[in-house]
Amino acid sequence: MLGVLSAVGVAALLLFGLILSPPDVAQADSVRLFYIHVPSAIVGLYLAFGVTCLGSIIHLRNGSVFWDLLAGAAAEIGVVFAGFTLVTGMLWGRPTWGVYWQWDPRLTSTSLSFLLFLGYLAVRRLDLDPAVRSKRAAILGIIGFLNLIIVRQSVQWWRSLHQGSTLNPVDAQIDGLMLFSFFLGLIALTSVFFWLLLHRFRVAWMEHQIEAASVTTALAARRSEAADYDGLAGNT
């Protein structure tokens, strides 16, 4: 169901984003990157890392394995989408600003978020006691999300090369078909995110079960060895 919605959404986004929407008066066709750049940022940074932050808080409060695994799954997909935001932003920056990259407040804070959650994923792979590892990851997950407040406000707090929010509800200065393509992008990528989250979580859950099962098997093996030893000791 969600998979079908995602596929249809992506197809519609490609159709409207690349063909049906008009080129911009100043930016020409590079405006088409807007339909994937901004939705990737909203879905990756705020939605995905929001789920990670929520899962981290719940995990820290009650040690829930479900929320820990969900937080990890959301972070991985969030990093992928944050990567999309950076790549499309750079490709958009070159024809618009004239450069691929500037150490601008918004660009810097966004790349910092990307790195923090990449660090979060690295912590989850560290060779540590699983409970300790999950706890440390959860703390980093919350810090990473707090950094997003800086990303959000960076264009207000500091002077930035990056433009502010176009989707100002008071006066949306955007052509109708462009706005439609943008919302299509937002719906398509949101749907893709939840569909991937479902599958990524499922994989994490299976890994957890297999790990738990292998510990049980190992324990059983030791028990039987020990029993054999007892038996041998008894015989001599």
């Binding site: 911009d24 008066v25 100043a26 020409a28 807007f34 618009t96 600003w97 433009q163 176009t166 200065q173």
Partner: peptide, 18 residues
């Protein structure tokens, strides 16, 4: 030595009658 264009937030369709 470096010149960057700071684009605004608005987007407008290309229109010959503009």
């Amino acid at each position: 030595r470096q010149l960057l264009v700071k684009h605004s937030e608005s987007y407008e369709a290309e229109n010959p009658d503009r």
